[in-house]
């Protein structure tokens, strides 16, 4: 397996994440799209770490940081989602147009 194979896989993940975000179906699918993008970045870091980096510990530390931050992000986002759901009983992006000017 060459480096570019990994980069292309990550690119496909990133693009799939873009589709999930841009088609704006509902808030959870957008979150899934963001997770796909973060994973794309992580694959890149690990692949570069394996094939090009000067110090092969860096990439792994970066990916661990990314995983940790993603978990934190999801925790906050889901709690906001719960408040949103309690207030509106709906988590559809289309419905969230009230404050648009």
């Amino acid at each position: 397996m060459s480096l570019s194979a990994f980069l292309l896989v990550s690119l496909v993940l990133f693009s799939a994440g873009l589709v999930a975000i841009m088609s704006r179906r509902n808030l959870v699918t957008i979150l899934v799209g963001i997770e796909l993008m973060l994973n794309a970045a992580s694959i890149n870091f690990m692949a570069f770490n394996y094939y090009t980096a000067v110090d092969p510990v860096v990439g792994q530390i970066i990916v661990l940081v990314i995983i940790g931050l993603a978990a934190a992000e999801v925790a906050i986002f889901l709690s906001i989602l719960m408040v949103l759901y309690r207030a509106r009983h709906d988590v559809d992006v289309e419905e969230i147009r009230e404050i648009r000017g």
């Binding site: 496909v12 993940l13 799939a16 509902n26 899934v32 796909l36």
Partner: peptide
């Protein structure tokens, strides 16, 4: 598996 899962997640109509 990774690519198929991602594309499935991006296109499927069920959360």
């Amino acid at each position: 598996l990774a690519m198929a899962g991602a594309i499935y997640a991006a296109l499927v109509p069920h959360t």
